[in-house]
Simulated scan of single mutants.
Amino acid sequence: MATLSNHKVAFLVAPEGIEQVELTEPWKAVEQAGGTPVLVSTDSGSVQAFNHLDKADTFDVDVTTSDADPADFDALVLPGGVANPDFLRTDQGAVDFAKSFFDNGKPVAAICHAPWTLVEADVVRGRTLTSWPSLRTDLRNAGATWVDQEVVVDDSGASTLVTSRNPDDIPAFSAKLVEVFSAERVSR
């Protein structure tokens, strides 16, 4: 069984618009594997999650992108929701935070609409990934190969990238990110 003991995993989100289940289920998977999830956002305070278009729960931010040091983390998870990554991709601090994981060869997992942030960070060129279908053209225009699969693991770059399409894929997405994050730590 994969373990994330002594792993600190950043979950990067905007102040609102996060698809709640795409935050909470991978978060639980990291915790259950022994890792420490940390909620990183562009603003301090709390963030507003959604169940599709309806407001759901709020979650306390642990650290802002301006105060977070990517070197303190072993991996990055990018939850989806339409508004969440759309906001993140317009915030240079959030884009730089996400890009730093690729620059430093650390694994990243992104689900649903989350790859929009990766497009802005210019880290998908030459990679194969999946997402919510409406991102297909954006990803292709950014140089990625888009496929329609439950979970895709691309290890062609310095950092391994795990992607999934939607909330239905969360069980496979969560299991794969724990497996990849565990293996990446061992190999470093």
Rank of each mutant, 00 (worst) to 15 (best):
A2N: 10
A2Q: 08
T3I: 08
T3P: 03
H7S: 10
V9I: 12
F11S: 04
F11Y: 08
A14S: 14
G17I: 11
I18H: 05
E22C: 05
L23H: 06
L23V: 09
T24K: 10
E25M: 13
A29G: 13
G34F: 09
G35V: 04
T36W: 09
T36R: 15
P37D: 08
T42L: 14
D43R: 15
D43S: 14
G45I: 13
F50V: 10
L53C: 12
D57Y: 07
T58L: 13
F59M: 12
D62R: 14
T64Y: 15
T65Q: 14
S66C: 13
S66R: 13
A71Y: 13
D74L: 06
D74F: 12
L76A: 07
V77S: 01
V77M: 02
L78P: 08
G81Q: 03
N84Y: 00
P85T: 08
L88S: 07
T90N: 15
T90Q: 15
V95T: 02
V95N: 03
F102K: 03
N104W: 04
N104K: 04
K106N: 00
P107C: 05
V108E: 03
A109G: 10
A109K: 01
I111T: 03
H113T: 03
A114D: 02
A114R: 00
P115M: 08
P115F: 13
W116T: 00
V119K: 04
E120S: 12
E120K: 12
D122M: 05
R127Y: 07
T130R: 04
W132D: 07
P133N: 10
N141K: 12
A142K: 01
A144W: 01
W146C: 03
D148K: 08
D148V: 06
Q149S: 05
E150A: 06
E150S: 12
V151Q: 02
V152W: 00
G157K: 04
S159C: 04
S159W: 00
S159T: 02
V162M: 03
D168L: 10
D168S: 15
D169H: 04
P171R: 06
P171K: 08
F173K: 00
S174F: 05
L177M: 14
L177P: 10
L177H: 08
V178N: 04
V180Y: 00
V180D: 07
F181P: 01
S182P: 05
R185I: 14
V186Q: 13
S187C: 11
